[in-house]
Design a protein around this nucleic acid. Structure first.
Lengths: 328, 328
DNA sequence: ACTATGTTTGAAACGGGTTTCAAGAGTGAA
DNA sequence: TTCACTCTTGAAACCCGTTTCAAACATAGT
């Protein structure tokens, strides 16, 4: 691996001059510049990013800390972050926590000590509170809202999304709706349910709920439970698209027709929801916008922020698991 | 950010001693060790990973260069890589290339200059040849086989997978099978097709093929084409699960029953293929094993390699889109 | 008591770009 | 010709954890 000092020697200039040529930080005599460039291309010299970031205290890195890389929602968000980051020359360092607070903290420390320029984090764990507040790099919390000052929040309007889901099923004529509540330690799941139940209260609809994790197998189980507990159910609000898919699967296996017998709505609008047969009616989050915004907040971190919370609107996407026809 | 020199000053020892305490690289007087540990916990000192990796020439980083982060196959592989990496204290730096050779090369250079300990790469681009052969860190090419010396290869036996798919549809009684060939510049797609066509030749089955990209929309189009060109088709071998899903979607929309009218088999066994209704019959690649193996090759890079190519077996997973019943 | 061996320790060098600072070169005006 | 000012350039310090090397000290053996 050739170093800047070797390039300097071969081009008969000082390392400082080579640095100035590479970065265009100061005027360099044309003849010398050419010599330097020639040596660089002959030797294939690439500046060592580690040495650079040691001095600059910026590694051009965005840290991404997620509960699970396999979850399509996070994957789509990660993809949007990567796209935005890459366009500005930033790389993504990925950490998977499986919701473990220990792993979250160590990922956070790790990324700070790597001179990351900012961290994008999805967590429900308030214990990392202190670390984040003392953190000198921006920390962006996506999808969820915690009570941590010093962080930025980027998420959808889950409350409104919950309302939209409830209203849509009611508009579709459902009389006995069951809401599958997501994990209530997650702020977005809480907000969705609050929006949902608000509408039900306004319209005097009886609240029928079951609890469920954001997990395919949990969705399979909870569907059985719904059918047993609420035999007259004709509408199901799933806590996310993955759970909606599992609900559909159980209903289909039992010969229950969707949307004829039971109507079904998901949440997130992961790209999968459109690939399925039948296509899933769902509440769309602007996943790409959320990811892009989070990345931008880090890339433009020197700009003074007027807001610390960015809320995006959700949108009802009517497809094939409910009866009203959408635009499509 | 407190440095090792500050810690040393506060603990009244030299930076060298602090380093020895942190890393356990040499015996340190118990009393001093305790002083150092106390100062570390009081100040919240975390060693700067960048300075460390500048000296050590290892950043404890695995670079992962993929055509697309959204593709579930790669996501599942990435997840397995992350799991293996994390267990040994390595982080993942993710680069998305969208198959652009320029981006591949710059990601490769970038990762080398970041002192990455190794790179896992999925590409069909032979142009990066020279760079990889001169690369001083291990480069592992997954899923595909190129003609690049100096790289390691980790993949499934796609040829055998192609054979299994063909044999299964024949066993299921298909008389007019259409094979959707994947992009033939990708070695694994070629191998699958070779395995497939070998079986057809052995059994005197007419080869009926169409070309298709690994893409959902391409799958929708190609299905229309199949129905037009081969109206008596009763079996379809899709080039991967995503395309199989899109094929199913078109067939379903046209009222064609799967597997009654047309049987369908995918490739990969992404977790999605089991979530669907109907569940997809497919040729499984051991995605997690491939990812883990690739990561291990980097983590254990000092061990002498006896092989440069690691081939995993594929497995026929019979589910609901073909007529023979599997174990389940 | 004195050599021999072993252990602990800190000063200093190292890794490789970047930046500061002051010297040297060049230009123009007086 | 000389003073003033600008532009280009390289030496050296810097970022910060690690390691080498030799000094200092301790223990054991004779």
């Amino acid at each position: 691996m050739v170093s800047i000092r070797e390039v300097a020697k071969l081009a008969q200039v000082s390392p400082a001059t080579v640095s100035r040529v590479i970065n265009g930080t100061a005027k360099v005599d044309d003849e010398k510049k050419e010599r330097v460039l020639r040596v660089i291309s002959e030797t294939g010299f690439v500046p060592n990013e580690v040495a650079r970031s040691l001095f600059k205290k910026s590694a051009k890195i965005i840290g991404l800390i997620l509960p699970s890389i396999k979850n399509p929602f996070f994957t789509q968000m990660a993809s949007a972050i990567e796209k935005t980051a890459d366009a500005s020359g930033y790389r993504l360092v990925l950490c998977n926590t499986g919701n473990s607070p220990d792993k979250e903290l160590s990922a956070l420390q790790m990324l700070t000590s790597m001179n990351a320029d900012g961290i994008i984090l999805t967590t429900s764990n308030e214990q990392i509170h202190e670390y984040i507040e003392n953190c000198k790099i921006p920390v962006i919390i996506t999808d969820r809202r915690l009570a941590i000052d010093g962080a930025c929040y980027v998420h959808s309007d889950h409350y409104e999304g919950g309302r939209q889901a409830a209203e849509h099923l009611i508009d579709c004529g459902c009389k006995s709706i069951v809401c599958i509540k997501g994990p209530q330690d997650i702020s977005s799941a809480r907000a969705r349910y609050e929006g949902y139940s608000k509408v039900c209260n306004e319209k005097n609809i009886k609240l029928q709920t079951v609890d469920c994790d954001y997990d395919f197998n949990a969705g399979l189980e909870v569907t059985e439970k719904i059918l047993k507990k609420f035999p007259d159910v004709d509408g199901i609000v799933a806590c996310n698209d993955i759970v909606a898919i599992s609900v559909y699967k159980v209903l289909h296996k039992k010969g229950i027709k969707v949307p004829e017998d039971i109507q079904l709505i998901g949440f997130d609008n992961i790209s999968l929801s459109e690939l399925l047969t039948p296509e899933l009616t769902t509440i769309a989050q602007p996943i790409e916008e959320i990811g892009a915004k989070a990345a931008e907040l880090i890339i433009n971190r020197d700009e003074e922020l007027t807001e610390r919370e960015f809320t995006f609107e959700t949108e009802l996407i009517i497809r094939e698991t409910t009866k009203l026809k959408g635009d499509r």
